[in-house]
Computed example of a mutant assay.
Amino acid sequence: MPAPLKIRLTPQEDEQLLALKSDTNVPKRTRDRAEAITLNFRGWNVNQISSYIKYSPNTIRKIFYRWITRGIEGLYDAPRTGRKPRWSEEDVNYIESSLEKEPRTYNSYQLVEKLKKERSVSLSRERIRKILKKKIGDGKGLNIR
Rank of each mutant, 00 (worst) to 15 (best):
V92N: 04
K54M: 09
F41P: 04
K21Y: 08
K6H: 06
R80N: 12
I7F: 07
R86H: 11
P57G: 03
K84Y: 06
R29P: 03
R86Q: 12
I63L: 06
F64A: 08
P103Y: 07
E89M: 06
Q12T: 15
I53P: 00
W67N: 02
S56M: 03
T59V: 11
S88C: 13
S88W: 08
A78T: 12
S97C: 07
L115I: 03
E73R: 07
R86Y: 09
R104I: 13
E73Q: 10
R8S: 12
I49S: 01
T69M: 13
E100D: 12
G43F: 06
P11M: 05
T69Y: 11
N25H: 05
L75W: 06
Y52Q: 12
F41H: 15
D14S: 13
Y52W: 14
E73I: 07
V92I: 15
I49L: 01
S51Q: 10
E15N: 11
P27L: 10
D77E: 14
E96Y: 11
K21M: 14
N25R: 07
R83T: 13
K54W: 07
I37E: 03
G82D: 07
E35S: 15
Y65W: 14
A78V: 09
N40C: 11
I37A: 00
S50T: 06
Y94L: 00
W44L: 02
T59D: 03
E102T: 14
Y65A: 13
I7S: 09
G43L: 04
R104K: 13
E15M: 09
R31T: 04
R83I: 15
V46D: 07
R31F: 05
A34H: 02
S88R: 13
D32Q: 14
I7Y: 07
R66C: 00
I37G: 01
W44H: 05
P103F: 06
Y76P: 02
P85Q: 05
I63S: 01
G71P: 02
N40T: 05
T69F: 11
L17V: 12
S22E: 15
S88Y: 10
Y109G: 07
K84T: 10
P27Q: 11
K62R: 09
Q12N: 14
Q12V: 15
Y52A: 10
Y106R: 03
Q16D: 08
S97L: 09
L9G: 04
E96R: 11
K101T: 10
R42W: 10
L111Y: 08
W87P: 01
L115Q: 02
L20C: 09
A36W: 02
L99S: 00
